[in-house]
Design a binder for these strands. Sequence first.
DNA 1: ACTTGGCACTCGCACCCCACGGGTGCTAAC
DNA 2: GTTAGCACCCGTGGGGTGCGAGTGCCAAGT
Lengths: 339, 339
Amino acid sequence: MLDDRKLAVLRAIVEDFVQTNEPVGSKMVAERHVLGVSSATIRNDMAALEDEGLITQPHTSAGRIPTDAGYRLFVDRLSSVKPLSGAERRAIETFLAGSVDLDDVMQRSVRLLARLTQQVALVQYPSLSKSSVRHVELVPVSPTRLLFILVTDTGRVEQRVVDLPSALDDDSRSHLRAQLNAAVAGSRLADVPALVADLGAAAPGPHTSTMRTLVSTLLDTVAEQREERVVLGGAANLARAGSDFHGEVQSVLEALEEHVVLLRLLSEVSEPEAVTVRIGAENQAEGLASASLVATSYGSASRSVAALGVLGPTRMDYPGTMAAVRAVAQYVGRIVAEG
Amino acid sequence: MLDDRKLAVLRAIVEDFVQTNEPVGSKMVAERHVLGVSSATIRNDMAALEDEGLITQPHTSAGRIPTDAGYRLFVDRLSSVKPLSGAERRAIETFLAGSVDLDDVMQRSVRLLARLTQQVALVQYPSLSKSSVRHVELVPVSPTRLLFILVTDTGRVEQRVVDLPSALDDDSRSHLRAQLNAAVAGSRLADVPALVADLGAAAPGPHTSTMRTLVSTLLDTVAEQREERVVLGGAANLARAGSDFHGEVQSVLEALEEHVVLLRLLSEVSEPEAVTVRIGAENQAEGLASASLVATSYGSASRSVAALGVLGPTRMDYPGTMAAVRAVAQYVGRIVAEG
DNA sequence: ACTTGGCACTCGCACCCCACGGGTGCTAAC
DNA sequence: GTTAGCACCCGTGGGGTGCGAGTGCCAAGT
């Protein structure tokens, strides 16, 4: 049904349409690509491709444009990974090199990605649940109040003000801190709930209830809702590509403010080392029906700690974007693993 | 030159135009507002107002719309502060009540402000330079590396990874921390440079160079570039008001990504307790020529610690926006002062 | 069986034209 | 100083039209 030439025609249509943003007709394909057949033949092929639901015409007697399914096929079978230019690689390296802390890395990455792809970039902070505890610190703020600080091996620093049930002197504080660190330092945060389960109960002493408060703070910090963070950039690129979103720029912008939704989307790009592409309606999200997500996870070789990617119109340079996303993910992964 | 009636006409024009988004003509003014004169008279007044540069007509024989100067006059002399509805006050209170830490407060405030005003909201983190040191903490990460944490009385927690010149054992670390805290805890961050000036030099001991490293980290943290942060929200509201920006939505979005620019703008709203309005070209910023900034500072009664506000089209409900900004600033100020 | 040239047909788009109507400025009267 | 009347301006929108890109189909060719 779909012989090689028909696929070549599809590829030609996708490539031309991405480049020119105009419905592409049989004649265009015939003359801009060397397929060795006439426009009439291509017309027939295009009719077949349309029957398969891979392309469509915006209105009768205009050229064809790819459907979501068409892009999907293109991405899956027709696109070859476009290697980055040396200049781009160097740009990535120098851009990320000067980072001073995790916030800085996230911020720089998102800007970099937005600039490279000319689209909206999303970078997720390392998941707490995929990080390990490096240290827990208790900083006094007032006799009955302290700042609970959690530092992970991925560089995240989470803090939380805690109201204590009773006053706490320096020695007791040190003691509690030592206990907490002994229990959880070095462990995966995912395991923390199990590790501290008995800590509140089993430590009878003058500060049992304080310890219980601290433990619940710790658990709360790891808890679902607050554990994930995402930063985004390049929203201005939306305006430039505005027409591609069929006047739905507003709903895309609204979707971007729903970090919860973005995090869900990012969490679905599970497979490590591979760049995932979600095209149009494949994104199960309000307002992103004419948008595509190109994302991948990042981390050290052994484990991925979070995801990053870009969001753009379905009419997007997939090979180029995928290459950029993969490259940035590699660098960010390396930096986070070191830091 | 500008008698009371002419001003009343200007007010009518501003109000109607803000409401309808259509150039308002003399007839409209005559019938929708009770000025006791005929449309012909109003025509004369409008001619005068146009001579003064307060209104203009987008094209010959259309109604008039206010110029930047017209809005300016309206804001300065013609608008009465619109009190918030009880429902709004309650919304603010409940919305901000559940905040758990500073990040949370900032995030909630920005969302709240965006929703109340239907515009882009900007909230600046408390300036480090206007905060005091509550505590400095040194968390070991490896023998030659530690996490430098600075906690301010405004709830900000800044951290920084520091590479040490030599290994540091626990006791020395405690000692250095005690020294640092003794020197700066409780003082204004603005005064810190002076306070630590001699710390590096005057403390001869095995860890002089380590101390020097820490001091320079501390100074760096307070330094201009990284000290200020701003968070924004409600960008989707830009799209809704898109037409007001004369197709310059993109440049507005770009401006929003330049946090440095936003911070400069916010820093110019110095006067405490007053809501500052910058209209159109008064914003000395690329791409914000058709935007207005309504902002104010917030903090406790005694001192302001930062600013917040909203950015919208010049065609904006100034009284309502000003009321919302002021109210949110009051609540946020109170919360930050407590926390 | 596939390919190709030819051809009639279909629309979207850009363009033009013109009537409509809201709005103005002027003038003369009050 | 205010008002009614009036001529005039011009942007907007609807209808008509020609153009051109593109299609689908068919009959002939390989």
